[in-house]
Design a protein around this nucleic acid. Structure first.
Lengths: 210, 210
DNA sequence: CGTGTGCAGTAACAATAGTTACAGAAGTAC
DNA sequence: GTACTTCTGTAACTATTGTTACTGCACACG
């Protein structure tokens, strides 16, 4: 845990803070698909991501889903931080997109460290900043783009975070993430295939030239 | 300026911080429609809103607009804060929805005060928190609601921030805010009128029972 | 090797939103 | 008053997205 932590956060947190994190944090290794946070759930800790990718989803009262963004190594969940200050109930769902390693820090420490460590303060501010912009960009996509463009963006982003030109998802799963329906996604994917941008297979999609 | 500031922020900022704000901040009074921040513009200061309402808009590369949310008294612009830490260019446009009074604080002070004053730290964190949730709620509206529901929400919110059952806007202006077209908005407004929820007039709309 | 299950392809249709075009009403300027 | 502009109402049409229904294929499992 210590070497993982140092590798990922050593150059942004001071030694003393790293030591504190090691003392109070708990190391967690989760498999792909593991649900880390559920909507409405009370949060016990704040995650520091060491490796892997976490996807953050929003859901409305009818159960309709929407992918907000991915967390990658070195990221933390600003939503969690936001929750720690407010009503403490999660507004989002977090699912491991790949196998992931992370450190859970008790939320009580958050404010203490904010006072004590400049590097922690900067980290928290920076996380908010990055997340706010990420959310803004997600909003742009939904507000200004049509489904075909959103789909292309989705495939690109997914390939990027997973470092893989193969998208291991069914059309139904993609439809959930984009808050659309399976038939619509199949239709658009077919078009992309006809344009030579992707190659469709059962349970996976190969990206050729997006 | 001092009495305004104390009235609005006196119970959250300590005396010393208030004094600093008075020293380095500049008081600004702007009329309705005044453009406070433009997209891509470099930010000189961070606004603390004393009175009035500011609307925050997003725009894509084609010039299509979208209303994100309103700032009310006691709010500050988290986007601005986010900018101060990042590339400093504004991601959004800010327009005075009503006549407004505000205090502009030089962005250099932001980090200094973050270290120095706990109340300032909390204020900044809290602003981020509120804005993140606001943005999330905006995203919910766009992603999960249809235009008629969004329109109702828009009218309600506008009536709330302006404390007025009269919405002083043309259909075209509403269409811009919701990133739709005038004809669509006119059509939906007519339906709402037929349902007895509103009464339409030239240049304004009276809300009856939304 | 047949059967069941889940996935993908496709057609036909419905609903929603956006576009174009035009007419008339309300207000403004002269 | 007349001329002009702006705002609203409406029709007709297109585009996009969503829905329902049915097909066949691939794969797993006995």
């Amino acid at each position: 845990m210590i070497q993982d932590l140092k590798e990922q956060y050593g150059n942004i947190f001071e030694e003393e803070l790293i030591n504190e994190i090691v003392q109070v944090g708990t190391f967690k290794e989760v498999p792909e698909g593991y649900k880390l946070i559920e909507i409405g759930e009370y949060l016990r800790g704040m995650p520091l991501l060491i490796s892997g990718v976490i996807k953050i989803l929003r859901e409305d009262e009818d159960g309709d889903e929407l992918l907000l963004y991915y967390l990658e190594k070195g990221d933390t969940c600003s939503m969690t931080m936001a929750c720690c200050m407010g009503d403490a109930k999660s507004e989002i769902r977090a699912i491991a997109e790949t196998d992931a390693k992370l450190i859970m820090v008790p939320i009580q420490k958050m404010e203490e460290w904010t006072t004590k460590y400049k590097s922690w303060r900067n980290f928290v501010f920076n996380s908010y900043h990055v997340r706010l912009n990420e959310l803004l960009s997600t909003l742009d996509n939904i507000a200004f783009q049509k489904m075909d463009e959103r789909l292309i963006g989705y495939l690109k982003e997914k390939a990027r975070v997973n470092q893989d030109d193969i998208i291991n998802n069914t059309h139904q799963e993609i439809a959930y993430d984009l808050h659309s329906s399976r038939v619509v996604i199949s239709r658009l994917l077919k078009k992309l295939e006809e344009m030579g941008k992707i190659k469709l297979h059962r349970n996976y999609i190969k990206i050729l030239d997006l």
